[in-house]
Design a protein around this nucleic acid. Structure first.
Length: 557
RNA sequence: UGGGCUGUAGUAUAAUGGUAGUACAGCGGAUUCUGGUUCCGUAUGUGGGGGUUCGACUCCUCCCAGCCCAGCCA
């Protein structure tokens, strides 16, 4: 039986078009970011749709930068976006385009519109344009400049391009319908004057085309067959079709879908930029950010993000996806691939009183029980060890089955040990846990077959090295900021970053290189930070914790 | 209050006039040298009213709710 493939309304449309021979069955999509910020997981959804559709139907997908507003756009963002798309696992081959590549053609098309009597130069100021536009419930008034002659419009538009007019003094507008109930159709501006340096065209232009005019024509020039975008562009679709029809050029189909929202985070470039500018996070690639570079630094795999995008489905209704699904995809991938190591994050010393002080031995540990091909490694053991402070409890409740005075547990791969006594300082904190070990349980099993309820991870004190480990929590304190009356800045989780500096790690972790993902047994998945790590001195970011039954039991009580 | 769009378990999605299914989350259990993994089991849903039909998530109608739109942003 075949696995049931995920399908959705967009692929139904594409399949129908292939079936009916539209565009000779060709499928050509594009991913059209504006280089004014970095990509986030919402873009990843769009990227998976755009590139994924092309792959599925043996078509092509272009990367096109929608760079028509030089005041906001930067080359640095272009580079970041290229890196992010590649990292996610997609390739646009030689089809890297820029809307700015089409400025000459766009200009010619604008002239064509003027000659057709479908566009005019308007002398109204920004404020006047707004006043003439009317409101949502009242129709607009025609601009007094609407009926200029074609010759005058041509002359004026040429002079706009030549730089004869100051910014804001003139615009080129499409002549559509000032009475339209859709305000976008009330003679939209298609060119504005802007004396700004463009990251690609430099100072060649002082007039720049607007989105509605540019996007459909860019799609047409590239012979895009299916142009996917988010719901807010639904009200722009009339314009998309209008320009292409008036110009009588190749006509792609715009199809809208709902953008991704994820619980406990924000997903707009404006808000993410705010977090960066206000230094609430440490840059676009902060591991708490839902940006592609942030997720990468946090330790997410591209595979898990793609899997997530497959699983969330695609529809036209706005929704809020549970972060837990993303984390589930992550854990599934990491469980299969991450090598296991032992690391003690909040250490307390264990002294095995009946173990010789000068002795040292090595135990064989499995690197990944999910994949035997990953082999084994040797882990050093000695009389003094560190275990997790949480793995010991003085007055242990019934459901706590780790170490306590009088109890026996297993040290993973090593020995059964029994706690005999503890030592505390003046503050009442435990400083030493004294135990005895059963020499017959070497390797972690007792020949008499007796069972222990818990297995603890550990590191040998003399062999351990110290490293910094960073834990991250949700950016927001609430799942859905839209349901709150408060501004998102007031919903920021003040404790979203915790730095642990006294962690004791097993020696094998010392030489890992940046972006290596591992599992600290019994704790979680961690990734070697790609900014702050140095050779022999890795810094670890917690990618995601292991599911933790014990913490859930505690939370319930 | 003009126009556009959308309403299916807690969340996200299927069912395209014929048994409301899947995943995540939840709960219960089994296995386990990770309280991980894996496996088994389980509760919860068609926004509301009318209509058409043998039969409606699906078609019609009225209502309700949510989102988007009045940038010379994209």
């Amino acid at each position: 039986m075949e696995a049931k493939e995920n399908t959705h309304f967009i692929h139904e449309i594409v399949e129908e078009d292939i079936r009916t021979g539209k565009h000779d069955g060709a499928v050509h999509t594009r991913f059209p970011p504006e280089p004014n910020g970095h990509l986030h997981i919402g873009h990843a959804k769009a990227i998976c749709l755009d590139f994924g559709t092309a792959i599925k139907y043996k078509g092509k997908c272009n990367l096109r930068f929608d760079d028509t507003n030089p005041s906001k756009e930067e080359t640095a963002y272009v580079d970041g976006i290229r890196a992010d798309v590649h990292w996610l696992g997609f390739d646009w081959e030689d089809r890297e385009y820029y809307a700015s590549d089409y400025f000459d053609q766009l200009y010619d098309y604008a002239v064509q519109l003027i000659k057709k009597g479908k566009a005019f130069v308007c002398d109204l100021s920004g404020e006047e344009v707004r006043a003439y536009r009317g409101t949502l419930t009242e129709p607009g008034k025609p601009s007094p400049w609407r009926d200029r002659s074609i010759e005058e419009n041509l002359d004026l538009f040429t002079r706009m391009k030549a730089g004869e007019f100051p910014e804001g003094s003139h615009t080129l507008r499409a002549k559509i319908d000032m009475n339209s109930p859709n305000v976008h159709n009330r003679d939209p501006v298609i060119y504005r004057i802007m004396y700004a340096h463009h990251h690609r065209t430099g100072d060649k232009w002082c007039i720049y085309p607007m989105y509605d005019f540019t996007h459909c024509i860019s799609d047409s020039i590239e012979r895009i067959t299916h142009s996917f975008c988010t719901l807010e562009f639904e009200v722009h679709r009339y314009l998309y079709d209008w320009f292409l029809d008036e110009l009588e050029v190749f006509h792609p189909q715009q199809i809208e879908f709902a953008r991704l929202n994820l619980t406990y985070t924000v997903m707009s470039k404006r808000k993410l930029l705010k977090l960066v500018e206000d230094k609430i996070v440490d840059g676009w690639n902060d591991p708490r950010m839902p940006t592609v570079s942030g997720l990468r630094r946090r330790g997410y795999t591209p595979e898990s993000i793609r899997d997530f995008c497959d699983r969330i489905g695609l529809a036209k209704r706005e929704s809020m996806v549970d972060l837990a699904l993303l984390e589930h995809c992550l854990r599934t991938d990491l469980n299969a691939r991450a090598l296991r190591y032992m690391a003690v994050l909040n250490p307390v010393k264990v002294i095995i009183d009946n173990y010789p002080a000068d002795k040292e031995e090595y135990f064989t540990a499995v690197n990944n029980p999910e994949n035997p091909e990953d082999g084994t490694r040797e882990v050093p053991f000695s009389r003094e060890l560190y275990i997790e402070r949480d793995d010991f409890m003085e007055d242990a409740p019934k459901k706590f089955y780790r170490l306590s005075v009088g109890r026996e547990v297993r040290l993973r791969y090593a020995y059964f040990i029994t706690c005999e006594s503890i030592v505390k300082n003046e503050a009442g904190e435990i400083t030493e846990i004294h135990c005895t070990y059963d020499p017959a349980s070497s390797g972690g099993n007792s020949p008499d077959g007796r069972k222990v309820k818990a297995t603890l991870h550990w590191v040998s004190a003399v062999h351990a090295f110290e490293a910094e480990v960073r834990h991250f929590d949700n950016l927001l304190t609430v799942a859905n900021p839209a349901e709150s009356d408060l501004d998102f800045l007031e919903l920021i989780n003040a404790n979203s970053k915790e730095i642990l500096s006294n962690c004791k790690l097993e020696p094998a972790l010392r030489e890992l290189t940046a972006e290596t993902r591992v599992q600290f047994e019994r704790i979680g998945y961690y990734c070697v930070d790609n900014v702050d790590s140095k050779p022999g001195k890795p810094v670890f970011n917690r990618t995601v914790g292991l599911r933790d039954e014990w913490s859930r039991i505690q939370k319930r009580n």
